[in-house]
Write a protein that binds this DNA or RNA. Sequence first.
DNA 1: GTCTATATTCGGATAGAC
DNA 2: GTCTATCCGAATATAGAC
Lengths: 206, 206
Amino acid sequence: MGSPVKRKDILLQRRREILAAAADLFSRGGYHGVTMDAIAQRARVSKGNLYWYFGSKQEMFQLLFEDIVQTLVGPLVDIMESEWPPRQKLRALASACLDAAEANPEAVRLLWRIAIQPELGELLSAQYSKRIGPFIDYLKPIFTALGDDDPDATAMLYAVSLDALMALAVIGGDTYDRAKLMSVIEKVFMNFGGEKDDQSCLGSSG
Amino acid sequence: MGSPVKRKDILLQRRREILAAAADLFSRGGYHGVTMDAIAQRARVSKGNLYWYFGSKQEMFQLLFEDIVQTLVGPLVDIMESEWPPRQKLRALASACLDAAEANPEAVRLLWRIAIQPELGELLSAQYSKRIGPFIDYLKPIFTALGDDDPDATAMLYAVSLDALMALAVIGGDTYDRAKLMSVIEKVFMNFGGEKDDQSCLGSSG
DNA sequence: GTCTATATTCGGATAGAC
DNA sequence: GTCTATCCGAATATAGAC
């Protein structure tokens, strides 16, 4: 019969299920647009039971947000720490962003939403801002290496464009054409007269 | 004493004041995140009085949204209808977007928010989508004229980047450097080997 | 652990005096 | 036109049985 380990697994599993339901709903309705009733219904548990797993609606939302940031920026970290040549890094970053966006549209929705306006005070958006700054700093030397004469501005535009492309991946519908976008990004952001340093090797998607 | 005309003006003026208060609040909190109490307080009228001017919270929100779309896309129309050469048009469009974003941060917040997820059914976001498609179509021949060999994708990326830059103008803080951004846009989006067609003549801001 | 009440506050909207 | 008072449904959270 169920060992205590297994029991704990089931417990954590339920927690995850509830959080998944909440993630889906929050990403569409935002914090205020979603009721505990709705979450309970979607997760197939009673509303009272929700409060056995989580202390409050707010706690759920914050846990969720941390998960989401992790989900979206996690894949980027590996690339950033790699030793690849500049163009390949830029390509891989863009590709990873689109992968993440296609795989987690709710995460993108929620992240953008919180970026554009914190729903729970400033703490969440601060967490986001803390990421984008270093990311831009990381991009600067890459564009320098590509021969760009104003890497700061290009890095800014690149970072922001990636965010926007993730949004497009989620809401673009027919407008969104991944392959075309990848090639335009390459053409537009990686032609500063610097020498070519590599050939493509990424770009697959789900 | 007050002519009937003047009275009506005062009435409309109050209406505008209330809407302005509502715009500010809605742009931060979204539809569900703002209470009629809060709007009343900010507009310095009683909550009951709000309902003399507007039928419901929802009506206020919808009116507001139409205003906002108008505010943001209005300036673009003039440029789109002009007979300027391609580069100048692109420059002017970007500049106008940044102007509009700097002058109406609440509008940008609200527009992005609704774009990323409709709060009141699909009708509002549909209204937005209806704008972006034609805008991209409008951009295509411009990039063709510039010698771009994939104008569709470039147009898509350009449109999306402008949206992102408006967001950056609102939430970027120190990160946002308008002058630099304008020059990067020019470098990045207007160098396809086509001949130069003009010199700058725009770029002022508030 | 999971459920069914239920307490309680909040928020949109209305009534009606002035 | 503007206010105060109030109705009433909805939503967060708790209590307590099983």
